[in-house]
Design a protein around this nucleic acid. Structure first.
Lengths: 372, 372
DNA sequence: AACGATATCGATAACGATTGACACTGGCCG
DNA sequence: CGGCCAGTGTCAATCGTTATCGATATCGTT
């Protein structure tokens, strides 16, 4: 009758048939190379040769072994394989936790990895709160040498380099020195953000800085100060606090900032998460964003467009950064000679979380009604 | 002078000092258990006992070994460890690729994993295009038994269960049968979406269905048909096409749909990515969304709010689904008796990609100007 | 027919960590 | 003073896979 009805009714006889064979019956145990060897009547060494396509196996044997492999659904154990051969064709992305920033990088890397022959393994140390430094080193120690052929590390603060193991850092501690690095122009972006607030008339501008151990956080604060100085506006140091780049860690300093007797009229948050946190805190204090307080963020994670009001922010091309990091890593492993530091540009994205100061006379509604 | 200035200037003497010791000098090689043993003057077996906190080591020896471990920065190789002990305290999330849907689940799972003692490993088979079925089985075969203690599989179509290995499926092929499953109320959500378009006056409504092998896609189409039938509107089968849940795979069918002589006035896309794709195609054909075409999606991935115009869609609580999946997996491993199927609710999120049909007379601007 | 040159395949030793079995060291008691 | 026991620590086997190298079979050549 209809194509789609057909699909709905035709699928069961095919797919579930295969599924029912497989579910819980066929391979109750993991099938290993020795199973394949026994079934095919050869030794595990021969199976290994077939799997890795090495020389010295008769065509007929290759055929038979491959038959058995696909029949039994054999797949090499990543753990055992890497333990022995130190080559897995898997690349790692090491993050402290999966938050918007790192998942955007992940999306970019995932697109880039297609066609390279590598697979992607993202590993979270589970150290979200940043309670212990050195998660990068620990994760790297656990996975490198075995399991992965190279790694992209997101916002590392301490990194060691090892022999024969390639690492690319995204937004690291030490800035563009030492490790191959991908970052964006944090300084210019911060100047952009601050100048935007200044151009709206704000003078009492607060800043929630990021984790002080990250180069990007320092550059953003430096850009903020530079723009303020160039505009001839003195920075009130009470308006500069450590926000820590996370929603939870930004709450207290944001509250302090907004509790000041002469609170800022605008806040440049070190990243989008702390900006979102600031907006929440402001709302909780009965302040309206942007009417009572302008807020600008940094990063342009997707979440920044989802909040109310949508956040004005500085965009860095996160997915592209992830893709560039992956490409750089692949090139390093392949031994390609190339530049090992890539800095991508930042841009201002105007949404709705900032208003001029002092506010224009509210004639009707702040939105200008355009004539037909 | 100020706290922040202090931090900025005080950090260099401390952190980089530590970094410079570590970078490229201290541990050129991976440090393994035998290194620790040699340095501490004991055997590897003793080191293993200390690491795993087993009985039979003198307090003084424990102390000394731990000293050496932290001094050398030893960390057990995940590969070797799992190969032998079959217990790693790492849980896997298996996805075909890292796109908005799976990364949202990842965020939710990442939050939930904190405090459970597990770490998270996300593995992408790299099979983005869905070219080969069975990526779930292959990934599972590669990682289970070794490396991970349990897995969350995202949108699997074929799954086998193994002994002593726990798997939770998110949005699977077979619906809530067989595996422990997390999904959302796809049918109700689709009815919601379709009724919304109907309530706006649309009658020629197209549908871009999802991957026909996913239960969620079938339920969404079924909900669409049910709502249409209940409203007494016949479904024009030429307006129902397979969109495949991905941006690229939706382009051709979207183009076909919009090229019809009597094209639909509204499209219910199977998910947000194909909705976004539809909007792109429409723009490319000179059609305005929502003036010439209303589009509604499904999922409410963050990207849906970023497009222009922001997409009206059905929200499913993706992060919560990821969190629930992880919690279910942890409970299963711990042997907790509990319900193994969780269905979460869906809701309509109205943004700007849908308009009434026929359009209201355009007096001035479509936005009503509210009196002061 | 006898020989060596290939082709094919299998036994074996790692890789790094875990673990049960076992050997050593004292101290203490009979 | 010998023996026994508790307390420590080491040996060796093992997980699943790969690399080396030796063993066997096959074949052509003279």
């Amino acid at each position: 009758m209809s194509i789609v009805i057909d699909i709905v009714f035709e699928t069961p006889p095919t797919l579930p048939a295969a599924a029912s064979i497989i579910i819980g019956v066929a391979f109750p145990q993991r099938v290993k190379m020795s199973d394949v060897a026994r079934t095919a009547g050869v030794s595990v060494a021969t199976v290994s040769k077939v799997v890795n396509g090495r020389y010295g196996v008769a065509a007929a044997t290759v055929e038979r072994v491959q038959q058995v492999i696909s029949q039994l659904g054999y797949e090499a154990s990543l753990g055992a394989q890497s333990l022995r051969s130190h080559r897995t064709n898997v690349l790692g992305i090491l993050v402290a936790e999966f938050e918007p920033f790192s998942t955007e990088l992940l999306k970019g890397a995932s697109k880039e990895v297609a066609g390279t022959g590598y697979q992607l393994l993202a590993y979270s140390s589970g150290d979200g709160g940043g309670t212990s430094i050195g998660w990068e080193r620990r994760s790297l120690a656990r996975l490198s040498g075995t399991l992965i052929d190279g790694a992209v590390i997101v916002t590392p603060t301490v990194v060691e380099t090892k022999q024969d193991f390639h690492v690319v850092a995204v937004d690291p501690h030490t800035g563009p020195s030492g490790l191959p690095t991908i970052d964006s122009d944090n300084f210019a972006g911060a100047v952009l953000a601050t100048n935007y607030l200044l151009s709206l008339g704000h003078r009492r501008i607060g800043h929630l800085s990021g984790r002080p151990d990250l180069e990007s956080a320092r550059l953003r604060e430096a850009g903020f100060r530079k723009a303020m100085a160039d505009a001839g506006v003195a920075v009130d140091e009470r308006l500069v606090r450590v926000g820590g780049f996370r929603v939870e860690s930004a709450e207290a300093p944001a509250f302090e900032l907004l509790s000041l007797p002469d609170r800022p009229t605008a806040v440049f948050a070190g990243n989008d998460l702390s900006a979102i946190s600031t907006m929440d805190v402001a709302r909780g204090m009965g302040l309206s964003v942007p009417d009572d307080l302008s807020v600008i963020g940094f990063d342009n994670v997707p979440e920044s467009a989802l909040v109310n009001p949508p956040l004005t922010t500085i965009t860095q091309p996160l997915q592209r950064m992830g893709a560039e990091a992956l490409r750089l890593l692949v090139d390093l492993i392949a031994g390609v000679e190339r530049s090992t530091h890539i800095r991508l540009p930042t841009e201002l994205v105007v949404r709705s979380s900032c208003r001029p100061f002092p506010p224009p006379p509210r004639a009707s509604l702040p939105l200008t009604v355009r004539p037909t």
